[in-house]
Amino acid sequence: MQERLQELKADALKQVEEANEVKALQDVKVQYLGKKGPITEVLKGMGKLPKEERPVIGQLANDVREEIATAIETKKQKLENEALEKQLEEETIDVTLPGRPAPTGGPHLLTNLIEEIEDLFIGMGFEVAEGPEVEADYYNFEALNLPKGHPARDMQDSFYITEEILMRTHTSPVQARTMEKHEGKGPVKIICPGKVYRRDTDDATHSHQFTQIEGLLVDKHVRMSDLKGVLNAFAKQMFGEEREIRLRPSFFPFTEPSVEMDISCKMCGGEGCSVCKGTGWIEILGAGMVHPNVLEMAGYDPKEYTGFAFGMGPERIAMLKYGIDDIRHFYTNDVRFLNQFHKA
């Protein structure tokens, strides 16, 4: 009986070895391990054996059964793996073919820049204030210390609609309106982005419409050193840690003192080059301490309150940053221009 079992085992293992597909393995399994299979037969005949041999043969029969089952399972695994590998091999694609394009939109360069600047100032506690583009003469000029007859408010330079209504020439009227709303009480801490209009003929450096971002801080103890601190923080975040700023005296009717802020030239690091016209500095924005007349007209006591204001042109900043040579590009909406700034 022992020989019979060994024989069966050898035959079965041979058949397992020879099986090339799962189906054949299944047949081997049925043939040898099935209820009517030879091993079962052997076990059935065990009653005829002497008592002491029975456990030995029983054990052997079980071992053989186990061994065959394991062989079948191992072989099955192997065949399945091979089949899967083959299938995967067949499923191989050309990964270098182009993918299905996902939609690619993006912001306008100016909006992107304005949002970046907004976020910088929001981080310093500023709010974003907006106001009408068609303005009353009073807010655009008078409230900003530009009374009627002032040389800086020539009819020739502004788009008037009526004598009292015009396209705003800067976003400063938003400052005047916001201060007025606060009824003489501080603090006011805002930046005002928006479209502005000047009576210019469009060319490479002039645009009858452009954008501006102005900032205003009015409170009881605002110092010029605070203006320096805020502008410095802005310049470093916007243009790079290594940029220096400097203030130069300038003139605006709504601030006194008035300054212009330069940043050290990125191209030459301050040595002087064609970008900075040899000076090492690039003019970025105008600023100053809010003129007492402006405070007063908005209902603030200039003895108690001081403030600073600044204003910059996103177009100019973009032109400097990217070397854009024609301001009209911002408004032509050439997709070859727009798309370049969709990338991060």
Binding site: E118, F121, I122, G123, M124, G125, F126, E127, V128, G186, P187, K189, L217, D219, K220, H221, V222, R223, M224, S225, D226, K228, G229, V230, N232, A233, R246, L247, R248, P249, V259
Partner: peptide
């Protein structure tokens, strides 16, 4: 000399800032 004016940050009550 504007260069000699220090850099300070505004004091006051402090605003949260933000968007509407």
């Amino acid at each position: 000399g504007y260069d000699d004016i220090p850099f300070t940050m505004p004091g006051g009550e402090g605003n949260a800032g933000g968007l509407t």
